[in-house]
Structure formats: C-alpha cells, structure tokens
Design a protein around this nucleic acid. Sequence first.
DNA 1: GCTCCTTACGATGGACGTAAGTATG
DNA 2: CATACTTACGTCCATCGTAAGGAGC
Lengths: 157, 157
Amino acid sequence: MELRHLRYFVVLAEELHFTRAAERLNISPPTLTVQIQEIERTLSAQLLNRTKRSVTLTSAGEVFLSEARRVLKQFATAENAGRRAGRGELGRIEIGYVASAAYTGILQDQMNQFTQNYPDVLLKVREFPMDKLPQRGNLTDGVILDHFLVVQDFLYV
Amino acid sequence: MELRHLRYFVVLAEELHFTRAAERLNISPPTLTVQIQEIERTLSAQLLNRTKRSVTLTSAGEVFLSEARRVLKQFATAENAGRRAGRGELGRIEIGYVASAAYTGILQDQMNQFTQNYPDVLLKVREFPMDKLPQRGNLTDGVILDHFLVVQDFLYV
DNA sequence: GCTCCTTACGATGGACGTAAGTATG
DNA sequence: CATACTTACGTCCATCGTAAGGAGC
C-alpha cells in the first residue's frame, strides 16, 4: 500500500460518492474503485458498504479513516520538517558554555532572540569546562551539527 | 512522494551504504539512488553527504529520518487497526444502561470480561433513561456500531 | 585496480482512462 | 430510464534492472 491509497480513501470517505471523489482527485471513477478494492484486499477488511445507490463507511472503515488521516497528517509534518531543515530553519543545536558566560545575561538574550527567529529549532544548553568546549564535529551523542553560533567568544554550537 | 520513498530512505539511513541498503530492499543500487534523489528534489533539501567513499546524514537528513520513521510507524498502526477492525476486534462501542443495572455489578463484570477479550475496543458507558435506550442505528454522534451486547436485557450496544 | 555511487538507457508492470456491464430507484 | 458503481481491456508512464561512467582510496 502507498500514500496514494490513503489519499484516495480519505477523499472518498469525505464524499461518500465515487464519482464526486474521483472528480476531486482528478482521476476516473474506475481507477478509484480499483484502488479502494486494493486497500480492502490487503487489509482483508471491508471498509465501505456499497448499495449501488449509496456509499457508507463500515465500522472498520471509520477506524481506518481516522488512522489514515493520522498518517497523512504525519507525512505532511515530515515533508514540512524536511523542507525547513533543508533551509536551516529546523534542527537540533547543542550549546556549550562556560559558567562565567551564564551570569552575564548575554546567553539568555541570545537564546531568546534565536528561538524567536527559528521557533522550530530545539536548543539544548549544557555547561562545559573551558577546555572541553567542543570543536565542530566531535560533539557527544553523534548529533550532526550544521549550525554555528558564537556568543562573546564563549558559546560554540 | 510515496511510502516507498520513506521506506527506502530509512533503510539507507540505517546502512549508510547504497549497495547494502539496496540489497536489504531487494532493489538495485541505481534504483535506490534515483529514488533518494527524488526525495531530495521534492524537498529541495540535501539529506545525505556523498563523498563517493562514505555516506553520512546531513542535519536535514537526521530531521527527516526521525519524521519518516514516525510516518511509517503510524502507517503500520493504521494497517493493524484496519485489519483488526475488519475482524471485529477493534472499534468503538457505546453502552447505554439503566441506573438499576449499575448496582447489580453485572455491568462491571461484563465490561471487564469484554475488555479482556478485546483490549483494543474503546468502551464508552453512559446512562440512559429506560425509554431512551437506543435502537441499533439511531445512536447519537453518528457513531457506527456493528457490535451488539445485551446484559440482563438492560444493556444495548 | 577495486569499490561504490551515479548516469544512461531499455524493459516491464501497474496505474490510468475509455467503454461496456449491471443494479437501483 | 437515469444514475452510479463495477468489470474489461488497451495505453502509457514510472519504477526497475543492466550496463557503462567516474571518483576516491
């Protein structure tokens, strides 16, 4: 099964009408019929009651509909996340700082400003002793870092 | 983009090796290459660093990997739910009962037994005045009901 | 020179549309 | 008799594999 099947099924469940649903999907009714049959076959479950004159969801259809919507929603999230991450607007950033910097208030200011500009970036802050400030690429936990911040020469990301 | 793309990408991210990943997926390396390129093109994001000698995830790749896994997991859930719902093992059941029945303890016993046999069925219990006990098919909220329970002639589902 | 990702190109399968079939109201 | 879901069948595109190219070690 592919996302296409889920997309088709959700629209059909909304319309409860093969012809109209097919129209919305820019495909022909027979194509929709076959694709829906494929879902039912792979699930070994009947999702729709067809009376040749009206289409309704079975109880299994209701269940699968809500799950399918969840999948599509999650997929949309994934797509967005991927796009934004590609533009550098989303990701995980670890900040190491030396204790003295924390007291200046500058760390807080910088973080606030940054999180405002990039609300989807997860900021992780951790104290490092001065000599352990990581070089790019040798951070713990295998986190990949493409971003680089320098605050007052004390904060590295 | 389809689920296939996500499946390919996740395996590749696990192997970090086109040839091995392709082997696991029972496809040829060139096919895998093209499919991954398709993802990167539709996302306008680079997910992998290829140095001709080693493959690593970019930060965007890390992000997309975790999101893609979520999608696939949700899809597996949807498939399972659909299958079980088709076998009648999963769904939503509303129980109407008259107050007197609640005191007999029978309601509780029956529910316990039922939820033990069908752990995935969501049970909703609500009191009904005797004369409002619903007939099959006219329950509120448009909930579709395929199951039918009778407890002491008082409980209908 | 070997490994391995990529590009090029030809083949096969599946999604799709058109047309016909059938049932319902 | 009209509407609308389905079956049948032919077409076309996309995924796939094979073969060749090129870069790194």
